[in-house]
């Protein structure tokens, strides 16, 4: 009887575990197949409500973009007809926006550290796979720095970005068992690319 209970529990756990994993897998595959970042961001918003770390910062960078889009037509009107006082208020708003941007940049840098930690701790990929990915990243950074020393980085930046995108897609595909981390990596790819360009060593 006890054995029956254990066997039934194991079956129940397997039944509960694999559909969850299958859902995450099909979700990430669908996202990759559709290639629509807007859907990814909405799912990030949902994750943000649940309290994950990275999407918070990814979302905080989004209003900056929206604000720039809103300000552009307003600035065009101001240069034509608005009085000087309003221009002054616009400048103070611009200064506030710059301060917000600086704050967002700081948070993005914190995000990347968090991503590193999560990559190191995830069980979705093994130790050798992590080391292989690390080797690839170090090779890419070394190549970027080599081109920078020869002052050819601007010419080769497209190739470097293509290599980075390929590497990121590999990581996203490998992390199919950790869909949250996979999605966060994909969403913050621009921040990762910028941080890679900043690495001097």
């Amino acid at each position: 009887m006890d054995l029956f209970v254990v066997a039934a529990t194991c079956m129940a756990v397997l039944f509960l575990a694999f559909p969850l994993y299958a859902d995450g897998q099909s979700c990430s595959k669908a996202e990759r197949a559709s290639g629509q970042p807007a859907k990814v961001e909405t799912s990030v918003e949902a994750a943000n409500k649940e309290g994950s770390e990275l999407p918070v910062k990814a979302l905080e960078s989004k209003p900056v973009i929206k604000r720039e889009k809103r300000e552009a037509p307003v600035k065009a009107v101001a240069s034509e007809a608005l009085p000087r006082q309003e221009k002054g208020s616009k400048q103070s708003e611009a200064a506030k926006a710059d301060a917000d941007d600086a704050h967002a940049v700081q948070q993005i840098s914190v995000d990347i550290e968090g991503l590193k930690t999560r990559l190191q701790e995830t069980d979705a990929i093994g130790v050798f796979t992590k080391l292989a990915i690390r080797s690839d990243i170090l090779d890419l950074v070394a190549e970027i720095n080599r081109h920078r020393k020869k002052n050819r980085l601007e010419q080769k930046i497209t190739e470097m970005r293509a290599s980075f995108d390929g590497l990121l897609l590999k990581m996203v595909a490998l992390l199919e068992r950790d869909p949250d981390l996979s999605r966060d990596l994909y969403v913050s790819r621009e921040s990762i690319w910028k941080s890679l360009l900043e690495v001097k060593v």
Partner: peptide, 28 residues
């Protein structure tokens, strides 16, 4: 017994084995 079964079954469903890890490294 049920608790033990759950404890052993859930990690088994998600962990990557060494053989899978090595195969993934080869493919990378």
């Amino acid at each position: 017994m049920v608790l033990l079964a759950v404890m052993f079954m859930v990690p088994a469903a998600h962990a990557v084995t060494k053989a899978e890890d090595i195969a993934t490294t080869i493919m990378l």
